[in-house]
Amino acid sequence: MFKLKINVKNFNVSFSDNQILKNINMKIPKNTVTALIGPSGCGKSTFLRSINRMNDFSSNFKRNGSIYVDGEDIYGENVDVVDLRKRIGMVFQKANPFPMSIFENVAYGLKIHGLKDKKELFDTVKRSLKQAALWGEIKDKLDSSALSLSGGQQQRLCIARTIAISPEVILMDEPCSALDPISTLKIEDLICELKRDYTIVLVTHNMQQAKRSSDLTSFFLDGEVIESGLTKDIFSNPKMEKTEDYILGRFG
């Protein structure tokens, strides 16, 4: 029923001599939301940042094993990292709009990928902002600074910016951790909407959020995947004791 999008095989990561990820195996199907849960420092974010190779910027980053996206090893020799990051977008924990206008923020990704036509640019920006459920709130002030928006609006702007360049996968690194409950709900609704067009991997500390918005869940602990499966199974009937302890809030 599901088509495989990302396939992680025996993936290890270490920084200096610290092994952060140990032998990760994971299959992420297309058009699903996969939640990565686990206590702080367990390697979820590192794993997420491995999927679009953002860890490459750390000079002491070492990895072995492979991550396949559509069957192609993204750590292979002939991979164009810039193109990979275009295909695999990312939304960060802290909303990080550029210090430009709202319009320019969304248009930036399109411009650097060579879209020059003004009309098309505007249409795509509009469509992305609509899809990110932000258009109605800001359509009259596209030229004002993105930094004047509220935290929740900024995060939705970052999502709009990410989907503007039509990635295939969206990685979200605790996108709601700094937001109030109403903004959080808006973004969760958005995630459910986006699932139709994109494959989403979501790191979250919020169990309710994982439960509400994801199809699949993987539980990370100390750099290992303890348990993976359908979200409803994991939350109603976890196989491992550690998973149960964590989702019931007994530790972490």
Binding site: F92, G109, I165
Partner: peptide
Amino acid sequence: VPNQFREASFGLGSTQWQCIKYIILPT
């Protein structure tokens, strides 16, 4: 220039030069 701007730019698939030219230098 906050590192998050660099991350955001690279995350959108910019080259290093594009990031410098459009994000870092203006900021």
